[in-house]
Design a protein around this nucleic acid. Structure first.
Lengths: 215, 215
DNA sequence: GACTTTATAGAACAAATTTTCTATAATTAA
DNA sequence: TTAATTATAGAAAATTTGTTCTATAAAGTC
């Protein structure tokens, strides 16, 4: 459920913060957000802010008044390097792949990293996901990292992939290993056990080509 | 009193607010200004802020926390996002910082990542280093990762910095901790021990703002 | 030197802001 | 349906923050 695209309320809140900051040079207080959005309580604002932060739109320093940062990368110029940030990847969360009906509704949804990729990899079929949880720590990928994947239907052994498992109906980030008659999806955290499934029960959605961490 | 040029203390304060805002996206509290300037009381800060406002350098909304507006447009340089990749970082290897004589570097040595950084962090004074060795594995940074740093003279506790140690005459990537009378430089690998030194024997060269890994 | 003005300190106070807790409606899943 | 999860509300508590007041030091003026 987490990592969903912001709903209309969250979008309204984000826009208000953005406009307010544009106008005053600092961000609004919770009370002001209540007064100018459809939310009617500060606790609700807090709730929505947490979701916005989780989705990577804002950063907020706890306990500090008006300490919100907008994480938008203002893309005024049309850049080919835009990669849609689809959401978070976590067990249980199916990822809507771009291309079909996915539309970026705000420029903040995208990150411009394409231009730093090797030329061979500069393709259109790249997308990004924010990592949730600790299932990849052994591969030095931590929570809130952003993984950039290229769309792929298959993978080589050892590669890190986003895989859709038909049975569980979920997408996860795992290392891919094709064994004799089955596929082994190996978490990069010794705490978690590998998942075995039949080849026809796994759909590779993408292969990780880059990891980015904002500190 | 009106229009007087700021004295050294006021200039120091203004610069601190400016830098802080550049770094965090919001302005500091009075207490933080006390902590990071030569003023020792909040009332003194208030006094200096009034003068700065009279002189037209800032605007301040009364009674509101962190509601300061810098009246001098921050020069948002039309950066192409190019960040010089200075080399590798490893114990024993001093890093030549860009800026002065390091104006020219081959384009292959640069990576274009600036455009994906949050706006607040888009600055000229960014540089990149390739990580050598395993001294940062506990922070999920592995060999060959590229760390992007912003030039900085100081750091907060826990931040990852590139630090130049006068005594050893070397630069390393460590976590920064200011203790009572000394600085602790903590490797993010339990195999290595922390380094302790006096504040005047450490020079912060940059603060890590991003990590990038090509897979 | 004596006087005035300005700069700095310190602490108490008042105000604004965020967080937390509990409770209820709305939505979704089973 | 029922149960579970999420969204929203409300108010109080905890925290951070800005202001005010008084006092002392420094600097400039005559």
């Amino acid at each position: 459920m987490k990592g969903k695209k912001p709903n209309s309320g969250e979008r309204e809140l984000y826009h208000f913060i953005h406009d307010y900051h544009q106008q005053y040079g600092y961000t609004p207080s919770y009370q002001e957000m209540v007064d100018h959005t459809s939310s009617k309580t500060k606790s609700h604002i807090a709730h929505q802010l947490k979701k916005l932060e989780h989705a990577g739109w804002i950063e907020k320093t706890p306990n500090l008044p008006r300490a919100i940062r907008l994480n938008h990368a203002v893309q005024q110029s049309p850049s080919q390097g835009l990669i849609p940030l689809l959401g978070v990847i976590q067990a249980g969360a199916p990822i809507p792949l771009p291309g079909s009906d996915f539309a970026m509704f705000l420029p903040e949804d995208s990150i411009d990293i394409g231009s730093m990729l090797p030329v061979q990899k500069r393709r259109k079929d790249l997308f990004a996901l924010r990592v949730l949880g600790d299932s990849m720590v052994d591969s030095n990928i931590q929570e809130d990292d952003i993984v950039i994947l290229e769309k792929a239907q298959q993978a080589n052994n050892g590669e890190m992939v986003a895989a859709w498992m038909l049975e569980n109906e979920e997408t996860t980030l795992k290392h891919f290993y094709k064994e004799k008659n089955r596929i082994r999806l190996q978490p990069a955290n010794h705490k978690y056990k590998p998942i075995y499934c039949l080849p026809n029960q796994v759909q590779i959605q993408g292969r990780v080509v880059m990891v980015v961490r904002s500190c």
